[in-house]
Design a binder for these strands. Structure first.
Length: 496
DNA sequence: ACTCTGTCTCCAGACGAT
DNA sequence: TGAGACAGAGT
DNA sequence: ATCGTCC
């Protein structure tokens, strides 16, 4: 998922765009989190094993899975104890261009399921006499079981319910959660998007946080990736950056053989935009480009992603007091959680809420400064930026010399939105001018027109051809060629 | 020499007691 | 799924 | 720091 090798490219060509940050820098900050991905990772990771058997998810007495609830509950509290204010963003319907990718995952998952059954059969067959074989089979079943994890609508609904009881805001995106997260960050409704999915940069989040999971200090540090800085260091406009990402390979479009991150960057710099790159490749004939390769569609998905206007959500994004009785009823009575632990956690949550609610120190400063010296300075800073940004946008057509201007614009954006300064009049100060992305605000779609986008599965158009839904397997390899091609992604949609 | 591809392997949470 | 390490092929 | 437990 995401953009192939994008992190590698960044580390090689724009390392300064990535910064390690400390938890202090997150105090009081609102961050948008992709809920599906989070839930999925808990379903995979939170398991317990009972002697000999492959591990399984945590469940209550009725056999309902609770791993995701356990995970969300404790992580959210922990985040808030560090003063972070999380907003969980849930997926809506995946775009049809993605159906190829989704079909692929589904297929891989089904294969894993078959292998899993085989492994389970072997466990049974090995029985007591052959402890070695049994152990091996269990280990294999273990791996396969994780690949067959699939998230269900019910998991999402349960997570939403839990979060609402906790007083933590939930956003339901019309389509891709990543796009919504980015839109929220771009609009200044939240300070950053926290996700492992690099796609979010393509959707225009000015800040991306990676590895925001901390189990205290023992884990890896949090990374902050700054989009303006990234654009400046790569010398690309926002549109060109998206072009590069599409060439590298994204969820919407199969990458071209022979084009990796290096060549993608090189080509876009040389030709100016994606269409020109494709045209050149076709002329050269070296790299085969499929007929009807749907770059326009892919571009549209990034530039005009289906999202709910962040401004309409701003007012609803609030952290309220937890519903204590509701939490106990839900977690303890319904899901079988330990009552003491839950009560204890609720206490932590209440304290944590106060912490995140405090205003950041530096926002006092900024606001104070604004109040006094502001009007003039503010205008001064803001004006030139947008002026500089203008010419750089609308790249699509030609623009070659545009690159330089774009870089300048990006640099300007970087210095104002930048990671350098603690910045961010977070509370309501919007801030962060979205880097010179395409046309103004992406089409705000009426959140969920009950009538509007109804046609539920009807839209399940046949997958475009660009993902060989079933890629013929070279019968070659030996041993476990079967499970080589893994399954499932962190973002299993409900699918079916 | 550089870039890309394919293969392989390990990994994926958080807490609390010790 | 991913991400890192490595070998190997194509340029 | 490691390891068993959470449900």
């Amino acid at each position: 998922m995401g953009i192939k090798n994008l992190m590698k490219l960044i580390q090689a060509s724009a390392p300064a765009a990535v910064k390690e940050i400390t938890l202090k820098e997150l105090l009081g900050r609102k961050v948008a989190i992709d809920a599906s991905m989070t839930i999925y990772s808990f379903l995979v990771a939170v398991r317990s094993s009972s002697d000999g058997a492959p591990s399984a998810n945590l469940t209550n007495e009725a056999g309902e899975v609770t791993s995701h609830l356990q995970g969300i509950f404790s992580r959210t509290i922990r985040l808030m104890e560090h003063g972070v204010r999380p907003v969980y963003v849930f997926d809506g319907k995946p775009p049809t261009l993605k159906s190829g990718e989704l079909a692929k995952r589904k297929e891989a998952k089904e294969k894993a399921k078959i292998d899993l059954e085989a492994a389970q059969a072997r466990i049974a067959a090995a029985g007591e006499d052959d402890a070695e074989a049994a152990k091996e089979a269990v280990a294999e079943a273990e791996k396969l079981a994780k690949r067959t994890v699939h998230m269900q609508g019910s998991h999402q609904e349960e997570a939403k319910h839990l979060l609402r009881l906790m007083g933590v805001p939930v956003v339901e995106a019309p389509c891709e959660a990543e796009a919504q997260c980015a839109a929220l960050a771009k609009a200044g409704v939240v300070w950053a998007a926290a996700t492992e999915d690099m796609d979010t940069l393509c959707f225009g989040t000015p800040r991306l946080l990676r590895r925001l999971t901390f189990s205290e200090a023992r884990k890896l540090p949090v990374w902050e990736i700054s989009l303006p800085k990234l654009l400046a260091d790569l010398g690309l406009s926002m549109d060109q950056f998206v072009d590069v990402c599409i060439l590298c390979g994204c969820d919407y479009l199969e990458p071209l053989k022979g084009i990796g991150p290096v060549k993608a960057l090189e080509r876009v710099r040389k030709h100016g935009d994606l269409a020109a790159v494709i045209e050149a490749l076709r002329e050269e004939g070296k790299v085969p480009v499929p007929e009807g390769y749907p770059i326009d569609e892919a571009l549209r998905l990034f530039h005009e992603a289906d999202i709910t206007d962040p401004e309409t959500l701003r007012g609803d994004i609030k952290w309220t007091a937890p519903d204590e009785a509701g939490l106990v009823e839900y977690l303890v009575d319904q899901k079988g959680f330990n009552a003491d632990r839950v009560r204890n956690a609720i206490e932590r949550l209440k304290k944590a809420r106060a912490k995140g609610g405090q205003k950041r120190m530096d926002s006092f400063f900024t606001m104070g400064a604004k109040a006094k010296a502001a009007p003039a300075a503010k205008k001064g800073a803001a004006k030139p930026k947008s002026a500089a940004a203008k010419p750089a946008r609308r790249t699509s057509a030609s623009v070659k010399a545009g690159a330089a201007a774009a870089a300048a614009a990006a640099a300007a954006a970087a210095s104002s939105a930048g990671t350098a300064s603690p910045v961010a009049a977070e509370p309501s100060g919007a801030v962060v001018a979205a880097p010179s992305t395409g046309p103004a605000s992406p089409a705000a779609t009426p959140a969920e027109g009950p009538a509007g986008r109804s046609a539920p599965e009807a839209a399940a158009t046949p997958a475009p051809v660009f993902f060989a839904a079933s890629r013929p397997k070279p019968a070659a390899s030996k041993r476990s060629s079967e499970d080589m091609d893994s399954a499932e992604t962190s973002k299993a949609k409900r699918a079916k």
